[in-house]
Amino acid sequence: MNIILGLTLGIGVFLIWLSCWEQPAKEPRKNTFDSKIRLLLHQADVHRVSAKMFYLISICFALFLGLVIFALTALYNLALLSTCLGCIAPWMMIRQRAKKRVALMRELWPDVVDHLRSAIRAGLSLPEALMQLQYRGPEELRPSFEQFSADYRSTGEFVASLNRLKERLSDPTADNIVEALKVTREVGGTDLSKLLGTLSEFLRENARTRSELEARQSWTINAAKLAVAAPWVVLCLMATQPGTVHIYNSFSGFMVMLSGLIISIIAYRLMLKLGELPEEKRVLV
């Protein structure tokens, strides 16, 4: 009894002592996968689709793909695997779209820098030069600079408007340009025109080199896609025979298809990884 009383008293004293100290507020845990999906959607210029909506679209697409495969082949094992694979198909399509848009933006940024340099040499201030890009910049980037112009006119905060522009673009090259403009705005200097000229030359040289490497790499990627798709096309053609349907609808047939799917995914990812060019990383995000 004395032991229980002593423990109770000790716990009470500890709780009183603990209440005298301020507990730090816990930061909400960030879902890194959600942030990656949102970044991909921004890079693919799909701003109206949220991460949750993207998950819903992926599930609906997976179910639709499974039903189509089952209707064409009558192989429910293949339909099940197709449904699982269909969950990641929208992610692959968005990723491919994002890569194409980043490559397109890489070709446009030197023109943006040239327009900025010309406007600054003509006597315009840095915010005015950026706002002029909604009229004189590349067609694909005009909506983003139009939003920057409206944002800057409504708030008058140049750095905050630049940060929001950087978030909308979600592009590694845009990050470098925005950070250079922020430093120039805060620190000042008279060599901005020279800096922009050097940056334009560097961006053009980088885009030219990457375009040549990607053109030489394209045959490897096409061969990988053909090598992965060919066995499954043959399987769908074989499904027109009743004996094939009976064999592949068994457990042994399911294990054969599952093993083939795993090997196909590993081989495809390995081939892409070996020939992949290093991606530019976003800075100060």
Rank of each mutant, 00 (worst) to 15 (best):
A180V: 02
D151P: 04
K52V: 03
L104E: 09
I57C: 03
A79Y: 11
A174L: 01
R208E: 09
G197C: 02
E22D: 12
A74H: 14
L237E: 02
G6K: 14
V46C: 11
I266N: 01
S35C: 13
W109D: 05
E179T: 00
R101Q: 07
E139W: 04
L41I: 07
F254D: 00
P143A: 07
P90Y: 02
R101V: 07
N176R: 09
K26L: 15
S118H: 00
Y55W: 15
R153C: 00
T8Q: 15
G253C: 11
I177V: 14
A239F: 07
L133M: 08
Y76D: 05
R208F: 00
A227M: 11
W232F: 15
R142Y: 08
R185S: 11
Y76K: 11
V113S: 05
R117M: 11
R29T: 12
E146C: 02
L80I: 13
V113F: 08
V245L: 11
L261Y: 10
A44G: 09
C60D: 06
Q241N: 01
I59F: 14
W17M: 03
S252H: 03
G156T: 01
R48T: 12
V283Y: 01
R101A: 03
D191K: 15
V285M: 06
R29A: 14
A239N: 01
S170Y: 04
E27Q: 15
I266G: 02
P278M: 06
V183W: 00
Q147D: 11
A223I: 12
K30R: 09
H246R: 14
I262Q: 00
D111N: 12
V233Q: 03
G253W: 06
Q132A: 15
